[in-house]
Design a protein around this nucleic acid. Structure first.
Lengths: 247, 247
DNA sequence: GTTGATTTGTCCGTATGTATG
DNA sequence: ACATACATACGGACAAATCAA
């Protein structure tokens, strides 16, 4: 008479902590019970509590600060970034195929969403976008390029990221910019970790972005969609060259 | 003269295990060193090893089998599902807003991708799709509906899931079906966890799906796109009703 | 600036449950 | 049924980080 397949302690504790957050209606940043309180409340050892919290930390559901306490996390898409990065790197030989998959998803999302942006974007946001493009153009001239440039937050790549982030802010859908940023981060990380970037020249990129803003300013949904598609064709072409070893 | 901000043990071990997988070119399912071997190789305690492995397990980068061993994980999108589910549930009051965000992403992806599917889908795949739709129609008649029906794997929802999975298999992009399945799972979980489903009637859903297959069979990309868009309008309309408390 | 209290980080030893042969 | 290898869990101890008096 043995009881079969009880749920493991750690998994159960994970669920209980999540449920505690939900029941108490805690939001990101709210303090959680200390490890000692949790072991007391749940009747388990500290190691079990810690392992459960570590797992939840990896999902960004809780945030642990050494010597201070445990808090509700932001539930960001960091786990997705980590997972996709690993997944891509683990393909050893043809990571370009994995990158192409991510790029296709990004493209479909951005090309599909830009149409809606044309309807929702405000004039003020368009001004911001134009400012970003202007900074891209001047950065393209000085050759302030890749990820390795030690410039604190003002590299060309950061401007590219900022452009796409501002672009989709007007949709009122918080998931979209986070998802795109996640894909973008994976792309940059993997590209940077194994040679030359897969991207077109900064001049070309800046020009494509200006085309997009121009179409949006004219409230030309189709034009914006075309401009975005062209932008991605350029990236894909470069990526294809890289995969053939043309450098 | 204190050394400032050394990297925590557990984080370092996580990186080292991932690096070990990458260096040895291990793929999913390959056995990893045992905990004892890892403590010896990395010169750390068992607790530190276990906490690191628990974190990697949460990301599905490693898979731990009790009493058997530790293995390379599949790096699935399970962490994304868990994160999005928590994020949605943690909005307490207006989880419908979070669901609408996920639904919009799904819609943009599927409507954008169906065009490419029309060009790549094979006749054999279309036969499979038609078979799934036929089963949906018969299931719609018997009223075998929601998630709660104890039927082992043959509920209407499973057929819906299978349809969309087969649909995007021909793209040769493994990420796409996994992403869509992840969103779908979050949607079902949250909907099921808080009342009535946000979906239209099974009859309507089956009909929409048949329209999609018909357009694909005719290699009508625009028609398929329209049919998919109509399908999502229906879902969104139901979701909007639910958020207004109309039952 | 030092001390003290609180909290998380790490380690050790031991016992138990689980899967394989 | 037994033995082996492995992960799971517990309790106690000390180190390190943070904050407040």
């Amino acid at each position: 008479m043995r009881r079969m397949s009880e749920e493991p302690r750690t998994s159960r504790i994970q669920r209980q902590v999540v449920q505690l957050i939900l029941d108490r209606r805690l939001t990101a940043g709210a303090p959680l019970p200390t490890e000692a309180e949790l072991m007391d409340a749940l009747g388990v050892s500290r190691n079990s509590v810690r392992e459960a919290l570590k797992a939840l930390q990896a999902l960004d559901i809780v945030e642990i600060r050494h010597g201070y306490g445990t808090y509700v996390g932001r539930a960001s898409l960091t786990p997705l970034v980590d997972g996709l990065t690993f997944r891509t790197l683990a393909r050893h030989d043809d990571d370009t195929a994995a990158l192409a998959e991510i790029l296709q998803v990004r493209e479909v999302l951005e090309v599909g969403l830009i149409r809606r942006v044309a309807a929702t974007v405000t004039e003020a946001e368009l001004d911001t976008l134009e400012d970003v493009v202007a900074r891209m153009e001047s950065a393209a001239g000085t050759g302030t390029g890749g990820a390795d440039s030690a410039g604190p937050g003002r590299s060309f790549s950061d401007l590219d990221r900022e452009f796409h982030e501002v672009l989709y802010a007007s949709l009122g859908n918080d998931l979209v910019p986070q998802l795109l940023a996640a894909f973008w981060t994976v792309f940059r990380r993997v590209s940077g970790a194994r040679g030359r970037p897969d991207e077109p020249s900064p001049e070309t990129t800046a020009r494509r972005h200006r085309d997009i803003v121009r179409a949006l300013r004219a409230r030309d949904a189709e034009g914006a969609q075309r401009a975005m598609a062209v932008h991605f064709r350029g990236i894909e072409a470069r990526a294809a060259e890289q995969s053939r070893g043309v450098g």
